[in-house]
Amino acid sequence: MIPPAFEYACPSSVDEAVRMLADAGEDAKVLAGGQSLLPLMRLRLAFPELVVDVNRIPELRGVREDGDALVIGAMTTHHDVIADPLVRRHAGLLAATTSTVADPAVRHRGTLGGSLAHADPAGDLPAVVLVMDGELVAQGPRGRRTIPAREFFVDYLQSALAPDELLVEVRIPKAEGWGFRYEKFHRVAQAWPIVGVAALVRRDDGHIAEARVGLTNMGTTPLRAPAAEEALSGAGDPDAVAQAAQEAAQGTRPSQDTSASPEYRAHLARVLTKRAVLAAAGMG
């Protein structure tokens, strides 16, 4: 199918992009990797009047260290995230999860920032950034602000970004000494996950000292599983992990669609949490 007509702008700096967004108001869309937006436009499910293409803004790409955090430019492609040595060293969960996103050609175009700003609860990366306690840096006409991941994902396909704000970078605290795993459950390799579970585990003396569990596609936003996280604390063997994982779906309201019912999603969240945590804890 064919996208509807739009005005096109291709700013070369963040400031310029933000100005364009501010001028255009609600009718503008930021074009990042385009791997979600362009299909939506082709299906005529999105009709932006102005498309602001931020692909030619060099400052939005790349990974750097900033003290205890990694700073990843919003327009860093999935491919580059996977390959980046800093990401692999300090944010292994992000690298591993990103390698499960879509397919190699899509990963050449699609970007970390684009995936997060799209705020699709079925996307793999929002739950990962949530579980890593990431922060999202947005720039608008009034300057920059930093939004914690837990406040960024507001609702289905809705982020905390204002229409005139551009996501410029993602800050991820280095996760030294944490085991990690992303368990993705999908019906065919290129399908969206029915449920995904991201686990980060810190062990101490053979026990789980701290576990963080993030849930993909268990509601209208990516979620943490606080009850499971609490129950996992101190778990010392697979049985205890399995027991704690039973809490994974507590408080969630997963959706009903062609690929799964809410009750099946809740079940999967429990099973995948057990598996992800066991693997992350090296108990699997």
Partner: peptide
Amino acid sequence: DTSNCGACTVELDGTAVKSCTVL
């Protein structure tokens, strides 16, 4: 229409992309 099939894959500056999902 959805970048799933890959029939339109070409190389853009040396890497494979789906040319139905690039302007």
